[in-house]
């Protein structure tokens, strides 16, 4: 399978007051097209930072991030915005729907930002809404939806434009167990049915059973990767790939 996303010795340092915090300390990994990957680790291990860097939300301090072969680590703000628009779909723990708009308009905003070819995905969107079982809820505002429904709308918004990668940060973090199961099943279904590449960032070990591959992080580095292709070369995962 084609490599969709690749990081090479990725480093990210934050300045917190006078102290420098190393959130990522040389992360190298490859994600292939159609994979459903879980990135797991305790709080503060750098997984959310990794998601922000992979999602072109922030630039790494050093190293490379390649999406579809293009290095985004040297891109300017406008180019990163374009990458987010074209390649990435985000799902957040707190849903992050626009509160003043209906579920339908929330999805339409993403399609509007994506541009004219969003119309090409009409059939895809209809299928997604059916799969997520939220067709009836489209006229409601986020405040009129349950947590599970809000998260399903957020998923629909994330995949509406057929992004290359869906990045989900603790997608079940604000849900009860029943809704968590529904949402995770839907991620799996999206992956199976549409070959959607999905990276789930979580500290919930139960989530692992829904994914094909588990990447574990600790203190800003990848400590294990169940990548079936590189299962026997775990040590190289902490080293640059090139």
């Amino acid at each position: 399978m084609k490599t969709l996303l690749e990081t090479i010795d990725l480093r990210k340092t934050y300045q917190v007051g006078k102290i420098e915090v190393e959130a990522l300390r040389g992360v190298s990994l490859r994600i292939r097209e159609g994979e459903l990957v879980a990135v797991m680790g305790p709080s503060g291990c750098g997984k959310s930072t990794l998601m922000h860097v992979l999602g072109a939300m922030t630039k790494p301090t050093a190293g490379e991030v390649r999406i579809d072969g293009r290095d985004i680590s040297t891109m300017n703000d406008a180019q990163l915005t374009e990458i987010r628009r074209r390649k990435i779909g985000f799902v957040f723990q707190k849903f992050n729907l626009l509160p003043t708009l209906t579920a339908r308009t929330n999805i339409e905003v993403a399609r509007h930002l994506h541009g004219a070819d969003a119309k090409d995905h009409n059939d895809h969107l209809a299928e997604i809404l059916q799969l997520l079982m939220i067709e009836e809820k489209m006229g409601r505002k986020p405040s009129e939806l349950s947590g599970g429904e809000q998260q399903r709308v957020a998923i629909a918004r994330a995949v509406a434009n057929r992004p290359a990668i869906v990045l989900a940060d603790e997608p079940t973090g604000s849900l009860d167990s029943k809704n968590s199961e529904i949402v995770l099943n839907m991620f799996r279904e999206l992956n199976r049915r549409f070959k959607q590449t999905i990276i789930l960032v979580t500290h919930n070990p139960e989530l692992v059973e829904y994914t094909d591959r588990l990447i574990e992080m600790r203190d800003g580095v990848v400590v294990s990767d169940s990548d079936p292709v590189h299962r026997n070369s775990e040590s190289e995962l902490t080293q640059p790939l090139i």
């Binding site: 999602g55 939300m57 703000d77 406008a78 915005t81 374009e82 987010r84 628009r85 074209r86 990435i88 985000f90 992050n96 729907l97 626009l98 509160p99 905003v109 993403a110 930002l113 994506h114 918004r157």
Partner: peptide, 16 residues
């Protein structure tokens, strides 16, 4: 602020 962050994450440009 959060809504602006959401829009930026969806790919809204500064100009938008």
């Amino acid at each position: 602020t959060r809504e602006i962050g959401i829009l930026r994450s969806l790919g809204a440009s500064k100009k938008f």
